[in-house]
């Protein structure tokens, strides 16, 4: 989903940068607020950033005969809500633009918009939908990770189609072409990413239960052997 350096015309490059900037600034403030108010969140924030860091470094083969990389932004979106990922995702993109010639500075805005804004929000929306319709945590996580991944690549395809419309068939024709490059290849990767997310959450549910309860991912259940003596405060339990 990295649009290569220089491959968006200046107007698009500037436009996407302006579009992504408020999300990234808001995300930076969300991260600072989270760390200041809940210092114990730092560990899981690190995990969310690290997950995106690993996954976006690994290019995986797909049945379509091409290869691509997952994004890993759904995890942080589920844990800390999407704004946090706007910053963490952009940091990853900046790292790759500066050190790996992957993506670029002129396309950073567009890439951040797809991977750090649209992906996490789409994944989070689906996660909420699954949870609200009675789905469990793990199905919700699977859906969030897979959709965050796919939505990112669909966004990239549309961004490219907008910047480089087909001479004959215009935007629609170009969108079909770019989607055929990105979207189908991404389906198995999205499923794999969903499974990885489930694996990771199975570990977190056991080992990071207090954090998950505080973040509202798990409902608070007083464990019989953990709560010292559950004192029912009169009128406190509703």
């Amino acid at each position: 989903m990295h649009i290569a350096e220089g491959f968006l015309p200046p107007a698009h490059a500037i436009g996407w940068t302006i579009a992504a900037a408020p999300f990234v600034v808001h995300g930076a403030r969300a991260v600072v607020k989270e760390v200041r108010e809940n210092p114990e969140s730092t560990l899981l924030l690190g995990a969310a950033g690290a997950f995106t860091f690993v996954l976006s470094a690994i290019k995986l083969p797909s049945i379509t005969g091409s290869s691509s990389h997952p994004t890993g932004t759904g995890l942080g979106a589920v844990l800390f809500r999407p704004p946090v990922m706007a910053l963490l995702g952009t940091v990853v993109l900046l790292f790759q633009a500066l050190l790996l010639a992957h993506g670029g500075l002129t396309t950073l805005g567009a890439n951040a918009f797809s991977m750090a804004v649209v992906g996490p929000w789409a994944g989070y929306a689906v996660y909420r939908l699954v949870r609200r319709s009675g789905g469990g945590l793990l199905p919700g996580v699977f859906a969030a990770m897979a959709v965050a991944d796919l939505a990112t690549y669909v966004t990239t395809a549309l961004q490219l189609a907008w910047a480089h419309p087909d001479a004959a068939s215009g935007f629609a024709g170009a969108a079909a072409k770019f989607l055929s490059v990105f979207a189908f290849t991404q389906v198995p990767l999205a499923i794999g990413e969903g499974l990885l997310g489930v694996l990771l959450f199975r570990v977190l549910v056991v080992n990071a239960r207090p954090e998950l309860e505080r973040l509202g991912v798990l409902r608070r259940t007083p464990e019989p052997d953990q709560a010292p003596v559950p004192e029912p405060t009169p009128g406190g339990e509703r």
Binding site: M1, E5, G6, F7, S66, S67, A101, L105, L160, F182
Partner: peptide, 25 residues
């Protein structure tokens, strides 16, 4: 197993041949 990112770049070079990348890494 070419990367989709580079495939997209090739696609632009094919379909929008007049386009010149205006910035280098």
């Amino acid at each position: 197993y070419a990367g989709t990112d580079s495939q997209a770049t090739e696609l632009i070079e094919d379909s929008d041949a007049g386009y010149e990348p205006w910035f280098e890494s």
